[in-house]
Design a protein around this nucleic acid. Structure first.
Lengths: 114, 114
DNA sequence: CAGGATCCTAGGCGATACTG
DNA sequence: CAGTATCGCCTAGGATCCTG
């Protein structure tokens, strides 16, 4: 089983790298919402109901550093910040969609499966 | 945004249900290895190098309860236990594969992307 | 409105020891 | 070999307050 080095970190496999980049409780739900249009901070905060202020900020920063989304500050008062998915972030959407579809299937078949 | 109830728990979306079932640091790597053949406990322990004894046991238990794998005990001394992916577990492999492939692509393009 | 800084605790997790 | 059980650390993350 080969090792897998990226950005100075060592992963056991591409799966672990992917989970590092978009795993965790909130990153996929965030990217998923950014499909189609930009969202503002408070919009995300309201829609991801159980996320805390601190967590949301942190996850957004990590996604930005991973270059999966773009943060745009409009210099107005009161502040106006848009989060937009990047081209790189878009490449993750099929994988997220696969997981989303599996979640649907899993719920549907989990209790009737052989 | 509709709610999504399963097994008494409330999720915001199918993505969150999927992450609940096979998210976390170890479950996908475990299921991924179980493709093709059965693995024994210590095999997994050695191969997932950084997993602790306790974590591995716990993750295997949860995957078993989610019906994604089957635990088979052979009544011999010393004990012999096989972990085999279930039919339901197999349905998750395409999604894991999508994530794995994305991990590869991400590493390849992350620093050259526009 | 967006988010930085601080404080603080529950519980996740590793380490270790023991068992059939 | 393949686990359970127990202890205790330590940090992830929630709550709260403050700012441009």
């Amino acid at each position: 089983m080969p090792e897998f080095v990226f950005e100075g970190q060592t992963f056991q496999s591409p799966v672990e790298l992917a989970l590092h980049a978009i795993g965790g409780k909130w990153k996929m739900p965030i990217l998923w919402r950014l499909n189609q249009r930009s969202w503002r901070y408070n919009e995300l905060h309201r829609d991801l109901k159980r996320v805390s202020h601190k967590m949301l900020t942190q996850q957004l920063r990590e996604l930005e550093e991973a270059r999966l989304l773009t943060r745009t500050v409009h210099p107005v008062v009161p502040p106006h910040v848009d989060y937009t998915i990047s081209a790189l972030g878009r490449t993750a959407l099929p994988a997220i969609e696969a997981l989303r579809q599996w979640g649907l299937d899993y719920r549907a078949t989990r209790d009737t499966a052989p």
